[in-house]
Design a protein around this nucleic acid. Structure first.
Length: 553
DNA sequence: GCCGTTTTCGGCCCGACTGTTTTCAGTCG
């Protein structure tokens, strides 16, 4: 069964699928991934050495799939998924057929359910949880709190006063688990951290690494990487940042804090000659790095966060480019470093040239509040000019009577440096009722009757000519001819994530990148939309607003 | 449990940090 492995091909034309009505990752895939993670945690408790990571690797792989497991199962391609072998393929098939995995139930029966909760407390892992259970009969957080209060932890080997104190803190803070932030939220926090550090400590290079740099749709923590001649001053500034809740650790090269928001932030100070290696290493993803290391190993090289080594000799490390070059790879854009085919593509020099912020010539989806004034619009236009945009389109509601005033304001706003455009946004019915000559373009939203009856493949009928832009979430499949899907920084919360964009890109679908900014205040957020698009392997060719306005039809 | 320019067995990333240790184990990323 194992011989002649199929190479899994991501996405297929016309597979822009659905199933994603509820926010991004396809339901089945993330369900199975979640179950695999639970199996991994239980296997940790059981003391297994390598199986847990195998299940976690499989879980990550499933979450990165652009296609639903059920569709893959139909084509018999389950065991072609990276990280899924015979055993896990069988468990997936069991789940698809019955809705459960017997192996998980079997593992669950071996441990009290509260034990897993214990391992989720910060600083408390499977080994400790298991010891508490075996030695103290502790079956969960509640029993642990009782044991702690009764002083039953005193005198347990390996548990001094400090550790007991930390366990108490962990139990107390257990009610506020850090949630993952959206890219928009993470971006704001990251920028303020960098600004604050720069203002208060002598920094040379500073970069955000981790999933933030990969522009993941959500971010669980932030990794700040810095070079500085005075690391201590940087750590001093870091551990006194505004909004700091507590410091988790501080060593000579690394410090970790938690902000009031619950967000964990890591800071590392590295030497300039190590900066590229550290940036590469901490940008990840884990699977991307594991894959790189296996390539390095085959060449008798070793990669870590300090550099690339041949024996004891460091042969690269100052820049990411030279790190990749030692593996005869071109530099790979951070947004696609997921081990989702980018390394193979790089080996064959087939990584597409991803869209860049400088490719974007305008934004066609600036919202205006009903009470927007001429000042509002002028200020938005000034923002667009400052960014060097060639055109800026305001989306005015097609339905409301108050739109007339907005139309007048937009039409009378002058700009010598960019073209001010007027778009009508509404359901196909509303757009059809408009005078076609009154607007420069149309933005179709989901018809109201369709919203009540979510159905894929809906084509806005009766729209004035084919709509230029589509603000349907989740988008219909396929996209209507001649339309472009509006993609803003908050698209992931509407089910438009990078894997959907990658399918769209491979199917040749067009998108329109937008800052999606109210009143045009934050046109700068365009770079977040660009990041999301890059993550979806999007090139400038499929970005409608990367072309001059005049070149549009 | 997965995987293979180390192929069907024998590996599986590894360093920083912490607390408790007298040299290390556990956790984390």
């Amino acid at each position: 069964m194992k011989g002649g492995r199929l190479t899994y091909r991501f996405a297929r034309p016309n597979a822009l699928s659905g199933g994603s009505a509820s926010g991004g990752a396809m339901g089945t895939n993330s369900e199975v991934a979640q179950l695999f993670r639970e199996i991994a945690d239980l296997l940790d408790l059981a003391g297994e050495r390598f199986k847990p990571e195998a299940y976690r690797r499989a879980a990550r792989s499933l979450e990165g799939l652009p296609e639903d497991l059920r569709a893959l199962a139909k084509r018999g391609e389950i065991d072609a998924i990276p990280g899924i072998g015979d055993a896990l393929a069988e468990k997936i098939r069991e789940y698809l057929a019955t809705g459960s995995i017997p192996y998980l139930a079997k593992l669950q029966a071996q441990f009290p359910p509260g034990l897993l909760e214990l391992t989720r407390l910060p600083g408390l892992g499977p080994k400790t949880a298991r010891r508490f259970w075996v030695e103290l009969g502790v079956e969960g957080p509640k029993e642990l709190a009782d044991a702690l209060a009764a002083g039953r932890l005193n005198g347990v080997k390996g548990f001094g006063p400090r550790k007991i104190e930390l366990i108490g803190q962990a139990l107390a803070s257990a009610t506020t688990p850090g949630r993952r932030l959206s890219m928009v939220e993470a971006d704001q926090i990251a920028r303020s951290i960098v600004a604050s550090l720069r203002a208060r400590a002598p920094l040379d290079a500073v970069e955000l690494a981790g999933s933030f740099r990969r522009c993941r749709e959500t971010v669980g923590d932030l990794d700040v990487l810095v070079t500085s001649r005075e690391p201590e001053k940087v750590f001093d500034a870091f551990t006194t940042l505004p909004g700091l809740a507590r410091q988790l650790m501080r060593g000579p090269t690394k410090s970790t804090i938690v902000l009031d928001s619950g967000l964990q932030v890591d800071l590392r100070v590295v030497a300039p000659e190590e900066f590229g290696a550290a940036l590469q290493y901490f940008t990840g993803s884990k699977d991307h790095n594991v894959h790189l290391r296996s390539i390095a190993k085959a060449r008798d090289l070793r990669i870590n966060e300090y550099g690339v080594y041949r024996g004891e000799e460091r042969i690269a490390g100052a820049t990411e480019k030279e790190v990749y070059a030692t593996l005869e790879l071109p530099w790979i854009p951070p947004e696609i470093r997921e081990d989702h085919g980018e390394i193979e593509a790089a080996q064959h020099h087939r990584v597409p040239k991803l869209v860049e912020l400088s490719d974007v010539r305008g934004d066609l989806h600036v919202h205006l509040a009903a009470d927007a004034t001429a000042t509002t619009v002028r200020s938005a236009v000034a923002g667009g000019e400052a960014l060097g945009l060639e055109f800026l389109g305001f989306a005015v509601p097609a339905d409301s009577g108050s739109s007339d005033e907005l139309v007048k304001i937009v039409r009378s706003t002058p700009s010598s440096r960019l073209r001010v455009l007027l778009g009508a946004e509404g359901t196909p019915d509303e757009l059809a009722a408009l005078d076609p000559g009154a607007f420069d373009y149309a933005i179709a939203t989901r018809p109201t009757h369709e919203a009540e009856r979510p159905k894929r493949g809906g084509h806005p009928k009766g729209a004035t000519s084919p709509p230029t832009l589509l603000a349907h979430f989740p988008p219909p499949n396929p996209l209507p001819d001649g339309s472009s899907l509006v993609v803003g920084p908050e698209a992931p919360s509407h089910g438009v994530d990078s894997s959907l964009l990658r399918q769209l890109a491979e199917a040749g679908g067009a998108i329109a990148l937008s800052a999606d900014s109210p009143d045009g205040n934050d046109l700068d957020r365009l770079r977040l939309a660009v990041g999301l698009a890059r993550r979806g392997w999007t090139t400038a060719a499929t970005v409608t607003n990367a072309r001059p306005w005049a070149a549009r039809t």
